[in-house]
Design a protein around this nucleic acid. Structure first.
Lengths: 218, 218
DNA sequence: TTACAAAGTTAGATTGATCTAACAAATATA
DNA sequence: TATATTTGTTAGATCAATCTAACTTTGTAA
């Protein structure tokens, strides 16, 4: 049995590995707001449970079992976010905190029903892929808007580091997933980008924002 | 702040008080499957938090604050059950265990949205009243089917002690809330009752079952 | 290449929720 | 009423998850 606390460590490891490739005790300590010695002893416990490969002073790695379990928790999280937005009409900036709690619900039927009602969605409201029933995730090959060139036309496909404030910022400017964005110009000094998108919006967005917007060429 | 564990004690106290009038350490110990000394020390803790009136060797009582908190948890539980049955199409025998977990979710919008989508329901799928936003509950004046007379015609309004097995038993016999039941005869020996109800069902049910069916005169 | 800073580890304390063992009070029964 | 049973309480142990303080290893910069 995996406790709620252990689930949170697994999920954090999965997300950090996804983002930075490697996971350290320090990363976990920062993302979970838990002191390093606590993280350290939890890693040993998860190693006993065959969820983590642990060797002193080496980077942490999830085992296959650990990856699967983490994937299943992320599946529940993202399915829930989709359900909250699509079926319960909550704003995409409100759903993360609720999903963070619902992801720990122990009930197979509950999440299967969600999946069915949503017609087996592949992505969540922020464009992140939803792992399958075996915890397997297909990583999408998106590009950051900040890495595009002047003149490019792209589709907004996902957002990352999506805090509630950031999502509200986007909503306020009618920026949502799926819109077609044309890059008018890039300011060399601070890398801010002037874009146009439906319906006849023109905005200049900072590099900080552009780094959080994932796009596809069209 | 009230912990998940404390919430479970408050809810149990509310339910026991509703059913038997008084609450004892022993009752709580049995319903929560927690040993008496643990219950005893939790009662002292809840007394410190002004949620329970505690005096050695006296029956336990919730304070007004305790009643309100318990009522709000039960509200979340029952709203959730209604949501799971009505909006997510789960069977009434499956929803209790899930609601038991979702009732601890901390999010005002989540439950307000549920309430709105359900169009402000007054009862849950088992006929139990849903407390209002202040935790206030209106107790219904139902009668047990086992207390009715031969010849009575009544409406099935609620079920109590509704275990999953009991609810499946009822579903299998097309017995659901709202049906009109006519009492054909009562066996004096064991108090089993022969009833008829739509559509042209006749069943003989034991006293144990009849004690769990709450009805209204019509 | 030595010294300092950052990251990781060990040891031991704390807190919340649980337990068992032993004792005390209240209640039921002979 | 005396005794036995049930219920309630106290004391102290355990376990999971956290912490702080002190120490070690690794990596970096002078």
């Amino acid at each position: 049995m995996i406790s709620l606390t252990e689930e949170n460590y697994l999920k954090a490891m999965f997300n950090i590995a996804d983002e930075k490739g490697e996971v350290s005790v320090n990363d976990l300590s920062k993302t979970l707001n838990i002191k390093m010695p606590t993280v350290n002893s939890m890693m040993k416990k998860l190693a006993d449970k065959k969820l983590v490969h642990y060797e002193s002073y080496k980077p942490l790695r999830l085992t296959e079992k650990g990856k699967k379990e983490a994937g299943l928790i992320i599946r529940k999280h993202r399915l829930t976010e989709m359900f909250l937005v699509d079926k319960m009409k909550l704003g995409w900036e409100d759903v993360h905190d609720i999903a963070e709690q619902i992801e720990h619900i122990q009930s197979i039927v509950f999440f299967e029903k969600m999946d069915e009602l949503l017609d087996y969605p592949k992505i969540d409201p922020h464009g992140s892929p939803i792992p399958d029933k075996h915890g397997k995730i297909i990583f999408k090959e998106y590009k950051k808007l900040s890495d595009c060139q002047s003149g490019d036309t792209v589709k907004l496909s996902a957002v990352i580091h999506s805090s509630s404030d950031f999502l509200k910022f986007l909503s306020n400017r009618q920026m949502h997933l799926g819109i077609k964005i044309k890059i008018k110009s890039i300011e060399p000094f601070d890398k801010s980008i002037t874009i146009s998108y439906p319906k006849s919006h023109t905005e200049t967005i900072s590099n900080i924002v552009a780094e959080r917007l994932l796009v596809e060429k069209i």
